[in-house]
Design a protein around this nucleic acid. Structure first.
Length: 127
DNA sequence: CCCATGACCACAA
DNA sequence: ATTGTGGCCATGG
């Protein structure tokens, strides 16, 4: 029963965050709050930021640069290897950034609630 | 166990 | 428009 279909173990909040972040298409961004809302915890935006902080050294590269704050500002850029790296990654995907602000923010914003179906976030029982 | 700290956000007033 | 505040979740002392 549990042998062939190994359910994705998204037991804890951080793992759910990581899963959503990996669904962001290149060239688009989303926000901490949008991820929190999608996961059903409206006010958990801070926790989303903390989750990204925890995986800042994760390999292979994790598209954390596609997460900005609710105004489109690159508030997390100082957690990359240098203060310009986040902007460089975005610009390499065709997103224009000026003065820490994502340009055409409403156009490139990708809201998981509008683009992801509600999936079953289930786990196999061992934590 | 309680308290403080975060890559945050919505809502007062 | 600009502040202040409470809430959210995981972690560490």
């Amino acid at each position: 029963m549990s042998s062939t279909l190994k359910p994705c173990r998204l037991a804890n909040f951080f793992e759910k965050v990581y899963w959503v972040v990996q669904q962001i298409p290149p060239g688009r961004v989303t926000t901490y709050g949008a991820i929190a809302r999608y996961l059903g915890s409206r006010g958990a935006a801070r926790a989303v930021g903390y989750a990204l902080y925890q995986c800042r050294d994760k390999v292979p590269a994790f598209p954390a640069h596609r997460v900005v704050n609710s105004q489109g500002l690159l508030t997390g850029k100082f957690h990359f290897k240098d203060g310009l790296f986040m902007q460089s990654l975005l610009e390499a995907e065709g997103i224009q950034v000026c003065d820490n602000q994502v340009q055409n923010f409403d156009k490139v914003l990708w809201d998981p609630r509008e683009n992801l179906l509600t999936i079953a976030l289930y786990y196999d029982g061992e934590r």
